[in-house]
């Protein structure tokens, strides 16, 4: 029980101290679980982080889930997940309550109109960053444009595109693999 609480609190700290998620989380996670607790080695954390990106959902929560799982199994993973969402729940609920109350104030509306411009630029920047590791050849490029146009012009849930893209990737791998196994 005590260790579950420790896992929960470590995740709360990682959640509260991370701005934006992703890479920003790594140094804080390393300090929490490698340096002060010695729950994991440096290499384990990097492995977890790599694996967490390959799982659906949020990278940080999955990474913390793997840490919790190693210590205390199912309960540990759950404690880590709940810890990761606790800071957001408190902070965002407070902000949302305040902003909802002031949503009609002209200054607030002007501020958000300005902020929206910034959001566009931030989205653009993260697309460029993701692009390098994702759109690695011509087939990926075609897939990219097909899905952009498809989701802009057809009323289809993003889930359909995600599933289709995964199936497509698996089929491509199967097609490239010579019959009877061996190196692809």
């Amino acid at each position: 029980m005590k260790e579950l609480l420790q896992i929960y609190l470590a995740s709360v700290r990682v959640g509260a101290l991370t701005f934006g998620g992703g890479y920003a989380m790594l140094p804080i996670l390393q300090k929490e679980v490698v340096e002060s607790k010695s729950w994991n080695t440096e290499e384990e954390i990097l492995d977890y982080y790599a694996l967490a990106q390959c799982l659906p959902g949020l990278i940080m929560v999955n990474t913390l889930g793997l840490v919790g799982q190693k210590r205390r199994g199912k309960a540990g993973a759950l404690a880590a997940g709940l810890g990761a969402i606790t800071p957001s729940l408190i902070i965002i609920t407070l902000i949302a309550a305040v902003l909802t109350a002031f949503a009609d104030v002209p200054a607030v509306q002007h501020a958000f109109a300005g902020i929206r411009v910034c959001v566009c630029v931030l989205i653009f920047n993260s697309i460029l960053k993701l692009w390098k590791s994702s759109v690695i050849d011509r087939i990926c490029l075609i897939l990219f444009f097909v899905i952009v146009l498809g989701s802009l012009f057809f009323d289809v849930t993003p889930i359909a595109f995600v599933v289709a893209a995964a199936v497509f990737g698996v089929l491509m791998t199967a097609a490239r693999t010579p019959k009877g196994g061996g190196a692809a």
Binding site: F144, F145, I147, S151, V167
Partner: peptide, 16 residues
């Protein structure tokens, strides 16, 4: 292989 298809799909959805 699945991620070979999923990564560009994810970027495409974010772009849209």
């Amino acid at each position: 292989g699945a991620f070979y298809g999923l990564r560009p799909a994810s970027v495409a959805l974010i772009t849209a």
